[in-house]
């Protein structure tokens, strides 16, 4: 224990401070984290996704996601040129255990990881009757578990299907963008565990974040742009058939 603690002192400064406090059992003292310095989002580099389901498993382990519900999941699209508007989509158990092998044929196949888009103008927080869900000052859509009524209005209002009611806690849950990790200088569990870098946590307020260069040089799209939700999950090279 002492050995590890000594080593942690030379970690990236924010993470080190956080870890120190986490290990000392006083996480409240942890980070030099300033909310106003961040505006979080996610880059999803669609062509890099191999559908391994690592992100889904990591999210489940990190966040105690109940069986049958998902804070992130992976969809596999199969688009044939006769039927561009009606792709065949599967996501067995959210892609947690990968996908059955796809055979080469006329159509194209690809994977699309899904998660909360952490919308800046989020329709889900708009409808919450009591202020139990909100966009945090650092741009993360969060739920106050101890205040949520469990009315499920937010679940109805999310265009992306990202929310669910926890069957045991009876309150709404969703991706927190691993708020407990990003405020300690770590990346999210899904990003940490994506083997191909298909997911990258981005901080739009950090001028050094590679996202700025990426957005300038790539075709980036958000899901359902017609919903005008200010989504902050940026999809690189997203196929037009994705819903």
């Amino acid at each position: 224990m002492n050995v590890s603690r000594r080593y942690f002192m030379i970690l990236v400064p924010a993470a080190a401070v956080a870890w120190e406090s986490v290990l000392a059992g006083t996480p409240e003292d942890s980070p030099n984290y300033k909310m106003q310095d961040h505006w979080w989002g996610m880059l999803i580099d669609t062509p890099k996704c191999i559908g391994c389901g690592n992100c889904v498993r990591a999210c489940e382990a990190e966040n105690d996601v109940p069986e049958g519900f998902f804070r992130t999941w992976v969809e596999r699209y199969h688009v044939t040129d006769e039927n561009m508007e009606n792709p065949e989509v599967i996501s067995p158990e959210g892609g947690k255990h990968g996908f059955p092998a796809a055979k080469e044929d006329e159509g194209k196949y690809f994977f699309v990881p899904k998660m909360c888009n952490h919308c800046a103008d989020s329709p889900c927080t708009q409808v919450c009757p009591v202020g139990a869900t909100f966009v945090s000052p650092d741009g993360v859509v969060l739920i106050d578990q101890s205040y949520c009524l469990g009315c499920a209005y937010c679940v109805q209002a999310c265009p992306y299907g990202c929310r669910y009611i926890n069957p045991e806690k009876h309150s709404a849950e969703k991706c927190t963008l691993c708020y407990h990790r990003i405020t300690k200088g770590l990346t999210t569990a899904c990003c940490e565990n994506c083997p191909t870098g298909a997911r990258q946590l981005v901080d739009l307020k950090n001028p050094k974040d590679p996202i700025h260069a990426f957005l300038k040089t790539h075709s980036v799209q958000v899901l359902k742009p017609q919903m005008a939700t200010g989504a902050k999950a940026f999809y690189n090279e997203l196929d037009g058939s994705v819903r």
Partner: peptide, 27 residues
């Protein structure tokens, strides 16, 4: 901070992590 319980942010941030992150391993 807005129409919600400000302390909720701390509650959420205080949860323990389960994946240590590669920086920790690399030490």
């Amino acid at each position: 901070y807005g129409h919600y319980r400000g302390a909720a942010l701390k509650d959420l941030a205080d949860r323990p992590v389960k994946y240590a992150g590669h920086q920790a391993c690399e030490v």
